[in-house]
Amino acid sequence: MASESRDSHEDSAVPQNDSEQTQAPPSDFEVIKVYDPKGELTLHRLSSATAFTCGRCNKEKKAKLVATYNNQWNDLRCNGCYGKLLSED
Rank of each mutant, 00 (worst) to 15 (best):
M1H: 13
P37L: 12
Q72N: 15
S48F: 03
C81R: 11
D7H: 10
H44I: 00
E10D: 13
P25Q: 05
N58Q: 13
C54M: 08
E88W: 06
K84V: 01
H9A: 13
P15D: 12
N79H: 05
T50D: 04
N74P: 01
S47A: 15
K38R: 13
A2R: 14
Y69F: 03
N17K: 04
K59M: 09
L43P: 05
E4A: 13
S48H: 10
N70S: 12
M1S: 15
A24R: 09
P26I: 15
Y69W: 09
L86Q: 13
H44Y: 11
S12L: 01
N74G: 15
L41S: 12
E60L: 00
K84Y: 08
A63M: 04
V34C: 09
V34K: 11
H9T: 13
L43A: 03
A2L: 09
Y69S: 01
T53Y: 04
D11A: 14
C57G: 01
K33W: 07
S87G: 14
V31W: 02
G39L: 08
T42G: 07
G39P: 03
L85N: 07
S8R: 15
S3A: 11
R6Q: 11
R45E: 07
Y69N: 07
F29C: 03
A49E: 12
G39V: 00
A51K: 12
Y82A: 11
K38G: 05
L85F: 07
S12C: 02
P26D: 05
V14K: 11
A51M: 02
G55N: 14
T53M: 05
A13H: 06
A24C: 06
Y82F: 14
S3P: 02
T53V: 09
K61Q: 13
T50P: 05
S87P: 00
N71I: 06
L76I: 02
A63N: 12
L65D: 07
Q16R: 14
D11P: 01
P15H: 01
F52A: 12
H44Q: 10
L46H: 00
P15M: 10
A49W: 06
T68N: 04
S5M: 10
R6P: 02
R77C: 12
M1N: 07
R77Y: 08
S48D: 12
C81F: 00
N58P: 02
S3R: 10
K64V: 14
S47M: 02
A13P: 01
D36N: 14
G80R: 10
T22P: 03
S19C: 12
E4K: 07
A63Y: 00
C57I: 00
G83Y: 03
M1I: 15
L43H: 10
S8P: 00
E88Y: 09
D11G: 08
F52W: 11
G80C: 07
C81A: 01
Q23A: 12
T22V: 11
F29Q: 00
Y35P: 03
R77N: 09
V34G: 06
S5R: 15
